[in-house]
Design a protein around this nucleic acid. Structure first.
Length: 491
RNA sequence: GGCCCCUUCGUCUAGCGGCCUAGGAUGCCACCCUUUCAAGGUGGAGACACGGGUUCGAGUCCCGUAGGGGCUACCA
């Protein structure tokens, strides 16, 4: 059992491609097989330098481990098509020699005329006498090698996901196998490679279905035993119109968040790789048991290409936020802290490990994505000495006014000072008692304190926050807030 | 245009002839819980594209129509 993902090196990977790769990988892992990465760079014009690194890094981030590929090598290499040119050329010659393909000398102008006529290539060089072909070649006329498709009858093949698919040969064309620059087209290269790399299951997007009969015929012409095929459904734009495109500006939601499409955008948006994997696995396939949240290992244990839904799907990106929050909640604090640390550092904070360790558990039910740590808990990591009392509009809670807030904060100080310890539980107890005695609601008291010590309207729970800040800092901040409010009242 | 694929709540999906007065999830709404924000709990609205067949019986099989997607390059 060997599966592969064979992208073109055209830059950062599209999430649709990643999903195809994921399905191939899950299938290989399920059956204890190998997953191969092969770079299809036979179109020199489209190759973007650095793409291979980007692709490999993306798989590393996702945790999709590659058994053979350009980085780790393997016994079927090289795994980059531009390094296998002679192989394709010799097999193309073999096809010509054996009557399955022919040299076509049609010029760009000729081709353009045929296209204009609306019928496509008219096979005008298919039956050119060998002598004439030799003459043209001797004159140095450039040519391509085309496959000789049968002109009648039908070609049918089995698709793991869709069952039997049939095509009338009369509708098919004589596709180019080898271009005039000596590079193979996808049609030739992938077959030669899949054969030599002993790929057992070809998984690829449905857009390849129309060329399925061509491929079947080429396999037969070579006389090679065919692998199994699975044409995967594709991701459509969130509105269900058209294939998911990179131009997703139109899908910016009201909050201004743009829809991630390229794999690096998921990383930048603060998603966990296990959430992205879980998300992708749920599209076109489902785990069963009415269960949507599961680990990659669990998915591997059940994944089956036969169970893949043949229909294309609108990109259900909204679900990723939920899935991400589920994964964040389920993560160990240590793991999550490890993910949060670089984000805090990138935002310019000097991350105190002890504080990070204390804050992380408070964040688990509160983060939708990793970046939410900044507005929610960034203040823990800011320079405490530079802390400024928040504005009255933050300090003064709903159903409160400045005078009442001053009263509450003023009363809290001696209560806090008197406390022997400074743990959240005892803080809660003491201040709840004050609330009860004073007639203020818990929310009014706790909220005023929250704003005073965090400087924010929204924060982790007040007393946990105070415990982490410590007694001295908490009191200092409450006094700062009081001072600010009084000044404002006076002014 | 031609060819091919697809069609269950807004969306992702379960369903492989009777278990379906169609299940789950998300999103949305309401209520509960509550120290903000979340999380969590409970409940609600919400779908078999349409028309013919086949069958005792169809979301499930067949045909047609409509709609969607793809291919139609010396790109993959």
């Amino acid at each position: 059992m060997r599966t592969r993902y064979a992208p073109s090196p055209t830059g950062p990977q599209h999430i649709g491609g990643i999903r195809s790769a994921l399905f191939a990988w899950l299938y290989a892992r399920r059956h204890g097989g190998k997953f191969i990465l092969r770079i299809e760079d036979t179109d020199q014009k489209r190759s973007v330098p650095g793409s291979v690194e980007m692709i490999v890094d993306a798989f590393d981030w996702l945790g999709i481990n590659i058994d053979e590929g350009p980085r780790q090598g393997g016994s079927y290499g090289p795994y980059v098509q531009s390094q296998r040119l002679e192989l394709y050329q010799s097999w193309a010659r073999w096809l010509v020699a054996n009557g399955h393909a022919y040299k076509c000398f049609a010029s760009a102008d000729e081709l353009a005329e045929m296209r204009a006529a609306g019928t496509g290539y008219d096979r005008r060089y298919r039956d050119l006498p060998p002598r004439d072909a030799a003459t043209l070649e001797a004159q140095g006329k450039p040519y391509v090698i085309r496959f000789k498709m049968p002109r009648s009858g039908e070609t049918a093949g089995e698709d793991i996901i869709r069952g039997r698919v049939r095509f009338q040969n009369a509708n098919l064309q004589d596709a180019v196998l080898l271009k005039s620059d000596g590079f193979p087209t996808y049609h030739l290269a992938h077959i030669v490679d899949d054969y030599h790399m002993e790929i057992s299951h070809i998984t690829r997007a449905v857009e390849w279905l129309p060329s399925f009969p061509l491929h079947l015929r080429i396999w037969d012409a070579f006389g090679w035993e065919k692998p199994q095929f699975a044409h995967l459904p594709v991701l459509l734009n969130p509105n269900g119109k058209g294939k998911l495109s990179k131009r997703k500006a139109q899908f910016v939601d009201p909050s201004g968040t743009s829809v991630p499409v390229l794999i690096n955008e998921f990383i930048e948006a603060g998603y966990l790789p296990e959430a992205v994997l879980n998300f992708l696995t749920n599209i076109g396939w489902n785990y069963g048991d009415n269960e949507e949240v599961f680990s990659t290992e669990q998915a591997i244990a059940r994944f089956d290409l036969k169970a893949v839904n043949p229909a294309n799907s609108a990109y259900p990106i909204k679900k990723l936020d939920w899935l991400n929050s589920q994964k964040i909640q389920a993560a160990t604090p240590d793991y999550l802290a490890g993910r949060l640390r670089p984000i805090l550092k990138a935002a310019g904070y000097a991350v105190d490990e002890s504080i990070l360790q204390q804050v992380t558990p408070l964040l688990q039910v509160r983060l939708k994505n990793l970046h939410d740590v900044l507005p929610m808990a960034g203040f823990f990591f800011a320079d405490w000495a530079a802390f400024k009392a928040p504005a009255a509009e933050i300090l003064v809670q709903r159903k409160m006014d400045a005078a009442a807030t001053v009263k509450v904060l003023g009363a809290a100080i001696p209560i806090l000072e008197r406390l022997p310890g400074f743990e959240a539980a005892s803080l809660h107890e003491a201040l709840a008692a004050y609330a009860k005695a004073s007639g203020f609601k818990n929310g009014q008291v706790f909220g005023s304190l929250r704003a005073a010590v965090s400087g924010q309207k929204v924060s982790p729970p007040t007393f946990e926050t105070m415990e982490i800040l410590g007694k001295a800092e908490s009191l200092r901040r409450i006094r700062l807030a009081l001072e600010g409010l009084r000044q404002q009242e006076a002014g």
